[in-house]
Design a protein around this nucleic acid. Sequence first.
DNA 1: TCTTTTTGTTGCCAAATGGCAACCGTTATT
DNA 2: AATAACGGTTGCCATTTGGCAACAAAAAGA
Lengths: 189, 189
Amino acid sequence: MNELIEYLLQFGNLNKQQTDIITSKATELKLQKGGYFSEAGKIPKQVGFVVKGVIRIYCYDNNGGEITKYFVDENRLVVDYENFEANLVSSDYLQAVTDCKLIVFSKQNWEELYHTITDWDKIITKAVQKAYQIHLERRTALVSEDAVTRYLSFLEKFPTLANRVPQAYIASYLGVTRFSLSRIRKNIR
Amino acid sequence: MNELIEYLLQFGNLNKQQTDIITSKATELKLQKGGYFSEAGKIPKQVGFVVKGVIRIYCYDNNGGEITKYFVDENRLVVDYENFEANLVSSDYLQAVTDCKLIVFSKQNWEELYHTITDWDKIITKAVQKAYQIHLERRTALVSEDAVTRYLSFLEKFPTLANRVPQAYIASYLGVTRFSLSRIRKNIR
DNA sequence: TCTTTTTGTTGCCAAATGGCAACCGTTATT
DNA sequence: AATAACGGTTGCCATTTGGCAACAAAAAGA
């Protein structure tokens, strides 16, 4: 639980009593590789925090191809935020790419925190906005540079991810086929 | 001013007294085509709301090429939010693509609204998060589909924009050269 | 109006990427 | 151990895109 509290403290202050409340509302969840934290066609019911492992968020394009939107690895919140908040059916899959250990909050417990912890809303707002900023920044990079540059900056931004995630997923994140990515890797060596 | 108030009411309730305060803190700003609302290398000092015209947000990639991040047209907030909030030097240019009429708030006036208007923070948080969601969604579309599809969905999402914005800007938004975009347009006809 | 500048188009060719099939190596499964 | 499943690589070729130069059209200025 310690990692979660440290993460939250980035965005605001919390005293011992408050952190105790937070941890009391959280439970541990283990996901096997390939398991789903939340699925398209359903309403997301949990907020998660990745203690160990990698989650991939993806959807399908109009041709039935998978698009990896982003990855969430250790010490990050994983949540289909928009649909979780609004109780909407999602069109995204949140899937464990490796075996994962998560800390999760049910929707009810999560909402109780807004009433219980002063400034909880501010902390979460900051965390969410930061996450949006990061994703957006990365996405913007993906439309400019060529595929080689995109892969290189992927390696820079996620140095530990390349070895843990199948290349096909990285390829779909970068917007190239797995064949192209394979050739790019060959040329880099 | 009416457009601004309507815009804000999407995200929360405001009574007459509150809307009066808001409008009292705003001023009108006209920007000529090509003029800058805010520039890279400077700290953004204003929040704007586009009454008339189109603003383009862009930056430079490592090769000196322009990347158009997004466009803001009528009835949208235009602000380099991240850097405005944190008082950081921006690396983006916010430029008028057409003659523009804006409603603007100085940083000081904007911050006074947080102290004066109940739930102002909640309204702005919602507005900002919605904006992030939209940008992120569009960016994700840009890494999957091919260039033709991307242009077609650009036309769908921004039907009025294609005629008002130089193609070179649209091309850099879509992640293709202006030459490619020109050929794509030719093939569509 | 005439000129200049900006914006958009096109031909040519090179480079990058996609699509498919085949193949290889590793990991799971039985 | 044998088999199957998965992940990754490579060759072949078609298609797309980029880069450049020249040109055309439209808009802005004088």
